[in-house]
Amino acid sequence: MSASPASGEEMVRVRLHEVAHARTGDKGNRLNVSLFPYDPQAWPLLAEQVTEARVLERYRHRGASAVRRHDLPRLPGFNFVIDDVLEGGVNGSLNLDGHGKSLSFLLLTLEVEVPARLALHPDRTVGQASVEK
């Protein structure tokens, strides 16, 4: 797996949703968000850009106090464990989504910079999404 894009390659800035998929699970007041690039070649780029600090920032308004990223290069994927983000967990939260089931899509709003060839995964059936150059 090559971590760096070929020199001179066109880079585009896209939402993570364009290049990766995610799922959340909850236990108590702790959330895990798994993240998988559609194209395994994008894994090193995501490893560089989807840092614990950026993820913490994206969830801080929900009370997130810490983020730990576990790398799984063989799947390939990542597992983010986010503390205190569920405002008390499913049994204590006042949020509509006390489980945090929808919060994978909040992670997918982060922007990343990737080579244009990785910005549209091959199985996609929707047209080209808004891609900022």
């Binding site: 995610a22 799922r23 699970g25 909850d26 702790r30 895990n32 798994s34 998988f36 576990h70 597992n79």
Partner: peptide, 12 residues
């Protein structure tokens, strides 16, 4: 893949 990590914290 999505389900493998569902409700998992430390994958190790």
């Amino acid at each position: 893949k999505e389900q493998i990590l569902y409700e998992v914290h430390d994958p190790s």
